[in-house]
Amino acid sequence: MATQAEHSSTNRRDFLYVATGAVGAVGAAAVVWPLINQLNPDASTLALASIEFDVGAIPEGQSVTITWRGLPVFVRHRTEAEVAEARSVDLSELKDPQTDAARVKEGHEQWLVMIANCTHLGCIPVGEAGEFDGWFCPCHGSHYDTSGRIRRGPAPANLVVPPYEFVSDTLIQIG
């Protein structure tokens, strides 16, 4: 049977060992985190995570492709006919039902901004082509309409609309 003195000295020792181990573990964690965090996008990449683009120069019926976060982005100035066509579609016909209004900004319905990668396997679709007057992906034959919604072919979803907003009448900020 251990005496009281032995007991308390054992306790003191155990406490010391646990405290040292705990402090060491905190130190190790503090070292590991920056070693992982360095893998995250760096400051120069983050600085370009949000870009501004002036859509004013795009004539009606034309589109441009810009780069955002390393991805191609279509900015299309749609004609009235295209907008009308997109709005007239019955949602029940769609594979990935979504209204045209949900894909554009209110008051700027003529502007369509989408990430230009086919939702199938990432090819860039060809504009003003396909059976629905929108985009056609030559890789595996996906057809998109004038709102960039998938209508036929293997792609599972509509072309993705990135987060963006109009900061003025013609200036959009993507990201």
Partner: peptide
Amino acid sequence: LFLVLFAGLMYATKRK
């Protein structure tokens, strides 16, 4: 600060 504290604890542990 951490290293000095930790070194102190390590020394005590080593002594024990």
